[in-house]
Protein backbone atom coordinates (compact mmCIF):
# COMPACT_ATOMS: atom_id res chain seq x y z
CA UNK A 1 0.00 0.00 0.00
CA UNK A 2 1.24 3.41 -0.78
CA UNK A 3 2.97 5.19 2.07
CA UNK A 4 0.81 8.24 1.65
CA UNK A 5 -2.35 6.39 2.63
CA UNK A 6 -2.70 5.44 6.21
CA UNK A 7 -4.76 2.63 7.61
CA UNK A 8 -8.36 3.56 8.31
CA UNK A 9 -7.99 7.03 6.86
CA UNK A 10 -11.31 8.82 6.35
CA UNK A 11 -11.98 10.86 3.24
CA UNK A 12 -14.52 13.54 2.60
CA UNK A 13 -17.56 12.21 0.76
CA UNK A 14 -17.13 12.75 -2.95
CA UNK A 15 -13.38 13.33 -2.70
CA UNK A 16 -11.33 10.57 -4.23
CA UNK A 17 -7.59 11.07 -3.71
CA UNK A 18 -5.37 10.26 -6.68
CA UNK A 19 -3.13 8.22 -4.38
CA UNK A 20 -6.01 5.91 -3.64
CA UNK A 21 -6.87 5.43 -7.31
CA UNK A 22 -3.22 4.88 -8.17
CA UNK A 23 -2.80 2.31 -5.43
CA UNK A 24 -5.82 0.33 -6.61
CA UNK A 25 -4.81 0.51 -10.27
CA UNK A 26 -1.27 -0.51 -9.31
CA UNK A 27 -2.67 -3.49 -7.46
CA UNK A 28 -0.92 -2.38 -4.28
CA UNK A 29 -4.04 -1.41 -2.33
CA UNK A 30 -5.25 -3.69 0.40
CA UNK A 31 -8.85 -4.78 0.71
CA UNK A 32 -9.76 -2.00 3.07
CA UNK A 33 -8.50 0.72 0.75
CA UNK A 34 -10.17 -0.95 -2.24
CA UNK A 35 -13.45 -0.86 -0.36
CA UNK A 36 -12.83 2.78 0.52
CA UNK A 37 -12.26 3.60 -3.13
CA UNK A 38 -15.44 1.92 -4.28
CA UNK A 39 -17.37 3.67 -1.56
CA UNK A 40 -15.94 7.05 -2.54
CA UNK A 41 -16.57 6.37 -6.22
CA UNK A 42 -20.20 5.67 -5.54
CA UNK A 43 -20.46 9.24 -4.26
CA UNK A 44 -18.46 10.83 -7.03
CA UNK A 45 -19.72 10.13 -10.58
CA UNK A 46 -16.93 12.18 -12.15
CA UNK A 47 -14.23 10.21 -10.40
CA UNK A 48 -16.02 6.95 -11.20
CA UNK A 49 -16.11 7.91 -14.89
CA UNK A 50 -12.42 8.75 -14.73
CA UNK A 51 -11.52 5.40 -13.20
CA UNK A 52 -13.72 3.54 -15.69
CA UNK A 53 -12.09 5.40 -18.55
CA UNK A 54 -8.63 4.50 -17.23
CA UNK A 55 -9.64 0.87 -16.99
CA UNK A 56 -10.92 0.94 -20.57
CA UNK A 57 -7.60 2.42 -21.69
CA UNK A 58 -5.72 -0.33 -19.87
CA UNK A 59 -7.94 -2.98 -21.43
CA UNK A 60 -7.30 -1.49 -24.87
CA UNK A 61 -3.57 -1.56 -24.14
CA UNK A 62 -3.82 -5.23 -23.30
CA UNK A 63 -5.77 -6.11 -26.43
CA UNK A 64 -4.01 -8.78 -28.48
CA UNK A 65 -1.55 -7.74 -31.15
CA UNK A 66 -1.31 -9.78 -34.32
CA UNK A 67 2.24 -11.03 -34.30
CA UNK A 68 4.05 -12.43 -37.31
CA UNK A 69 5.90 -15.70 -36.77
CA UNK A 70 9.51 -14.66 -37.07
CA UNK A 71 11.07 -17.99 -36.15
CA UNK A 72 11.70 -18.90 -39.80
CA UNK A 73 13.37 -15.58 -40.51
CA UNK A 74 15.50 -15.78 -37.38
CA UNK A 75 16.61 -19.35 -38.03
CA UNK A 76 17.31 -18.48 -41.66
CA UNK A 77 19.49 -15.61 -40.55
CA UNK A 78 21.27 -17.86 -38.08
CA UNK A 79 21.88 -20.47 -40.76
CA UNK A 80 23.28 -17.76 -42.98
CA UNK A 81 25.66 -16.90 -40.17
CA UNK A 82 26.72 -20.55 -39.85
CA UNK A 83 24.78 -21.62 -36.83
CA UNK A 84 24.22 -20.43 -33.33
CA UNK A 85 27.74 -20.74 -32.04
CA UNK A 86 31.20 -20.37 -33.36
CA UNK A 87 33.05 -23.57 -34.33
CA UNK A 88 35.35 -23.07 -31.34
CA UNK A 89 32.38 -22.90 -29.03
CA UNK A 90 30.86 -26.03 -30.54
CA UNK A 91 34.14 -27.88 -30.05
CA UNK A 92 34.16 -26.69 -26.46
CA UNK A 93 30.62 -27.96 -25.85
CA UNK A 94 31.47 -31.32 -27.45
CA UNK A 95 34.64 -31.67 -25.40
CA UNK A 96 32.80 -30.85 -22.19
CA UNK A 97 30.27 -33.55 -22.90
CA UNK A 98 32.98 -36.12 -23.56
CA UNK A 99 34.79 -35.09 -20.37
CA UNK A 100 31.57 -35.34 -18.34
CA UNK A 101 30.84 -38.81 -19.73
CA UNK A 102 34.38 -39.96 -18.98
CA UNK A 103 34.21 -38.60 -15.44
CA UNK A 104 30.92 -40.40 -14.90
CA UNK A 105 32.40 -43.69 -16.06
CA UNK A 106 35.40 -43.25 -13.76
CA UNK A 107 33.24 -42.37 -10.74
CA UNK A 108 30.77 -45.22 -11.25
CA UNK A 109 33.55 -47.72 -11.94
CA UNK A 110 35.55 -46.53 -8.94
CA UNK A 111 32.56 -46.77 -6.62
CA UNK A 112 31.77 -50.24 -7.87
CA UNK A 113 35.37 -51.36 -7.37
CA UNK A 114 35.58 -49.93 -3.85
CA UNK A 115 32.31 -51.52 -2.82
CA UNK A 116 33.34 -54.84 -4.29
CA UNK A 117 36.89 -55.07 -2.98
CA UNK A 118 37.02 -52.78 0.09
CA UNK A 119 33.46 -52.72 1.43
CA UNK A 120 34.41 -51.18 4.77
CA UNK A 121 35.82 -48.16 2.97
CA UNK A 122 32.46 -47.61 1.34
CA UNK A 123 30.79 -46.69 4.62
CA UNK A 124 30.43 -42.96 4.42
CA UNK A 125 30.00 -40.39 7.12
CA UNK A 126 26.47 -39.78 8.33
CA UNK A 127 24.43 -38.57 5.43
CA UNK A 128 22.58 -35.31 5.34
CA UNK A 129 18.96 -36.12 5.81
CA UNK A 130 16.68 -35.05 2.99
CA UNK A 131 14.46 -32.16 3.87
CA UNK A 132 11.30 -34.22 3.50
CA UNK A 133 12.65 -36.76 6.00
CA UNK A 134 13.55 -34.03 8.44
CA UNK A 135 10.06 -32.66 8.21
CA UNK A 136 8.53 -36.08 8.69
CA UNK A 137 10.86 -36.92 11.56
CA UNK A 138 9.79 -34.05 13.76
CA UNK A 139 7.60 -35.46 16.54
CA UNK A 140 3.94 -34.83 16.04
CA UNK A 141 1.60 -34.71 19.02
CA UNK A 142 -1.09 -37.29 18.65
CA UNK A 143 -3.72 -35.76 20.91
CA UNK A 144 -4.73 -32.93 18.66
CA UNK A 145 -4.99 -34.68 15.38
CA UNK A 146 -7.91 -34.04 13.14
CA UNK A 147 -8.35 -33.95 9.45
CA UNK A 148 -5.71 -34.57 6.85
CA UNK A 149 -2.40 -33.18 5.95
CA UNK A 150 -1.54 -32.86 2.28
CA UNK A 151 2.10 -33.26 1.46
CA UNK A 152 3.50 -32.34 -1.89
CA UNK A 153 7.08 -32.82 -2.89
CA UNK A 154 8.58 -30.65 -5.48
CA UNK A 155 11.78 -29.25 -6.86
CA UNK A 156 12.58 -25.63 -7.35
CA UNK A 157 11.89 -26.05 -11.02
CA UNK A 158 8.75 -27.98 -10.38
CA UNK A 159 6.69 -26.03 -7.93
CA UNK A 160 3.04 -26.68 -7.34
CA UNK A 161 0.54 -23.98 -8.12
CA UNK A 162 -1.90 -22.69 -5.56
CA UNK A 163 -4.73 -24.45 -7.34
CA UNK A 164 -2.72 -27.68 -7.24
CA UNK A 165 -2.43 -27.31 -3.50
CA UNK A 166 -6.12 -26.67 -3.15
CA UNK A 167 -7.00 -29.61 -5.37
CA UNK A 168 -4.66 -31.92 -3.52
CA UNK A 169 -6.15 -30.88 -0.26
CA UNK A 170 -9.74 -31.38 -1.31
CA UNK A 171 -8.76 -34.64 -3.00
CA UNK A 172 -8.56 -36.16 0.46
CA UNK A 173 -12.34 -35.72 0.72
CA UNK A 174 -11.75 -33.57 3.73
CA UNK A 175 -10.35 -30.13 4.26
CA UNK A 176 -6.72 -30.26 5.22
CA UNK A 177 -5.38 -29.04 8.49
CA UNK A 178 -2.17 -28.21 6.79
CA UNK A 179 -0.63 -28.16 3.39
CA UNK A 180 3.07 -28.87 3.46
CA UNK A 181 5.23 -28.26 0.46
CA UNK A 182 8.69 -29.70 0.79
CA UNK A 183 11.14 -28.53 -1.78
CA UNK A 184 14.73 -29.50 -2.18
CA UNK A 185 17.30 -26.92 -1.32
CA UNK A 186 19.20 -25.68 -4.30
CA UNK A 187 22.58 -24.12 -4.66
CA UNK A 188 21.06 -21.45 -6.81
CA UNK A 189 18.61 -20.60 -4.12
CA UNK A 190 20.50 -17.73 -2.60
CA UNK A 191 20.89 -15.81 -5.82
CA UNK A 192 18.65 -14.17 -8.30
CA UNK A 193 14.96 -14.78 -8.09
CA UNK A 194 15.11 -18.38 -6.97
CA UNK A 195 13.82 -18.45 -3.43
CA UNK A 196 15.63 -20.49 -0.84
CA UNK A 197 12.62 -21.90 0.92
CA UNK A 198 12.46 -25.60 1.50
CA UNK A 199 9.09 -25.91 3.09
CA UNK A 200 5.91 -23.91 3.13
CA UNK A 201 3.16 -24.54 5.61
CA UNK A 202 -0.34 -23.15 5.34
CA UNK A 203 -2.25 -23.70 8.52
CA UNK A 204 -5.86 -23.84 9.50
CA UNK A 205 -5.41 -22.42 12.97
CA UNK A 206 -2.67 -21.38 15.33
CA UNK A 207 0.54 -23.41 15.22
CA UNK A 208 0.14 -26.91 16.55
CA UNK A 209 3.28 -28.68 15.62
CA UNK A 210 6.95 -27.85 15.99
CA UNK A 211 7.59 -27.89 12.28
CA UNK A 212 4.64 -25.73 11.51
CA UNK A 213 5.08 -22.67 13.60
CA UNK A 214 4.72 -19.59 11.50
CA UNK A 215 5.55 -16.39 13.26
CA UNK A 216 2.95 -13.69 12.89
CA UNK A 217 4.12 -11.39 10.16
CA UNK A 218 3.88 -7.83 11.35
CA UNK A 219 0.31 -6.74 11.25
CA UNK A 220 -0.57 -9.25 8.57
CA UNK A 221 -2.26 -12.50 9.22
CA UNK A 222 -1.18 -16.03 8.62
CA UNK A 223 -3.18 -17.56 5.82
CA UNK A 224 -5.19 -20.50 6.96
CA UNK A 225 -5.99 -23.53 4.90
CA UNK A 226 -9.64 -22.59 4.99
CA UNK A 227 -8.88 -19.18 3.56
CA UNK A 228 -6.62 -20.79 1.08
CA UNK A 229 -9.27 -23.25 0.01
CA UNK A 230 -11.75 -20.42 -0.27
CA UNK A 231 -9.77 -19.03 -3.17
CA UNK A 232 -11.51 -19.74 -6.44
CA UNK A 233 -9.70 -22.63 -8.05
CA UNK A 234 -7.69 -21.55 -10.99
CA UNK A 235 -8.17 -17.90 -10.16
CA UNK A 236 -5.75 -17.43 -7.33
CA UNK A 237 -3.64 -14.49 -8.14
CA UNK A 238 -1.43 -13.83 -5.21
CA UNK A 239 -0.96 -15.27 -1.78
CA UNK A 240 1.75 -15.19 0.77
CA UNK A 241 2.90 -17.87 3.10
CA UNK A 242 5.35 -18.37 5.87
CA UNK A 243 8.15 -20.72 5.02
CA UNK A 244 10.36 -22.50 7.47
CA UNK A 245 13.54 -24.06 6.20
CA UNK A 246 14.77 -27.16 7.95
CA UNK A 247 18.25 -27.72 6.76
CA UNK A 248 20.25 -30.77 7.68
CA UNK A 249 23.86 -30.22 8.55
CA UNK A 250 26.52 -32.86 8.05
CA UNK A 251 25.67 -34.38 11.41
CA UNK A 252 22.21 -35.23 12.62
CA UNK A 253 21.46 -31.72 13.83
CA UNK A 254 19.25 -29.45 11.90
CA UNK A 255 18.70 -25.78 12.09
CA UNK A 256 15.61 -23.89 11.26
CA UNK A 257 15.45 -20.71 9.32
CA UNK A 258 12.40 -18.56 8.93
CA UNK A 259 11.78 -17.11 5.55
CA UNK A 260 8.72 -15.69 3.98
CA UNK A 261 7.57 -16.28 0.49
CA UNK A 262 5.09 -14.50 -1.61
CA UNK A 263 3.47 -16.55 -4.32
CA UNK A 264 2.19 -14.94 -7.40
CA UNK A 265 2.14 -15.41 -11.12
CA UNK A 266 5.37 -14.84 -12.96
CA UNK A 267 5.01 -12.35 -15.72
CA UNK A 268 3.26 -13.90 -18.64
CA UNK A 269 3.20 -17.30 -16.96
CA UNK A 270 0.06 -19.22 -16.32
CA UNK A 271 1.09 -20.73 -13.03
CA UNK A 272 1.85 -19.51 -9.60
CA UNK A 273 5.48 -19.49 -8.69
CA UNK A 274 7.41 -18.23 -5.72
CA UNK A 275 8.00 -14.66 -6.64
CA UNK A 276 10.12 -13.11 -3.99
CA UNK A 277 11.43 -13.42 -0.52
CA UNK A 278 10.55 -10.59 1.75
CA UNK A 279 11.81 -9.29 5.01
CA UNK A 280 10.36 -10.92 8.13
CA UNK A 281 9.27 -7.49 9.25
CA UNK A 282 7.21 -6.90 6.16
CA UNK A 283 3.48 -6.82 6.46
CA UNK A 284 1.41 -8.81 4.06
CA UNK A 285 -2.18 -9.62 3.78
CA UNK A 286 -4.36 -11.37 1.29
CA UNK A 287 -4.21 -9.43 -1.88
CA UNK A 288 -7.05 -9.07 -4.35
CA UNK A 289 -7.73 -11.66 -6.97
CA UNK A 290 -7.49 -10.40 -10.47
CA UNK A 291 -5.68 -12.90 -12.61
CA UNK A 292 -6.95 -16.12 -14.02
CA UNK A 293 -4.52 -18.99 -13.97
CA UNK A 294 -4.54 -21.94 -16.27
CA UNK A 295 -4.91 -25.43 -14.93
CA UNK A 296 -1.79 -26.65 -13.16
CA UNK A 297 0.43 -28.85 -15.24
CA UNK A 298 3.01 -30.25 -12.93
CA UNK A 299 1.26 -31.53 -9.84
CA UNK A 300 2.90 -34.38 -8.05
CA UNK A 301 2.25 -36.08 -4.80
CA UNK A 302 -1.09 -36.39 -3.12
CA UNK A 303 -2.97 -36.20 0.09
CA UNK A 304 -2.01 -38.62 2.82
CA UNK A 305 -3.81 -39.31 6.07
CA UNK A 306 -2.53 -37.56 9.10
CA UNK A 307 -1.48 -40.28 11.41
Amino acid sequence: MTERLSQGEQFDPGRVPDELIDAVLDGSADIEHSRTLFKQLSQSPDAAREVASTQRAIEALRSPVRTPDLSGRVLGELARRHGFTTPAMRRQVWMRRVAAAAALVVVVGGAFAVQRFVPEAATLLPQATPVSDVVAAVPEPTTQIAGFKARITCGLDDLPTLSTLARTCTGAQQACDEVVVACDADSRASDGDEPAFTMVVLQRTAPRRPVAQPVAMGQGMTPTTEQFLALPHGKADLAWAHAKSMRPTTGQDTYAQDTYAMWGPASGASRVEPMMLVSPTATFDWIGLSGELAQPTNARGGATPYR
Binding site: L25, T54, A57, I58, A60
Partner: peptide
Protein backbone atom coordinates in the same frame (compact mmCIF):
# COMPACT_ATOMS: atom_id res chain seq x y z
CA UNK B 1 -1.53 6.68 -16.93
CA UNK B 2 -3.36 9.91 -16.21
CA UNK B 3 -2.13 11.48 -19.43
CA UNK B 4 -3.02 8.34 -21.37
CA UNK B 5 -6.51 8.32 -19.86
CA UNK B 6 -7.16 11.93 -20.87
CA UNK B 7 -6.16 11.42 -24.49
CA UNK B 8 -7.82 8.05 -24.67
Amino acid sequence: RRKMRKYF
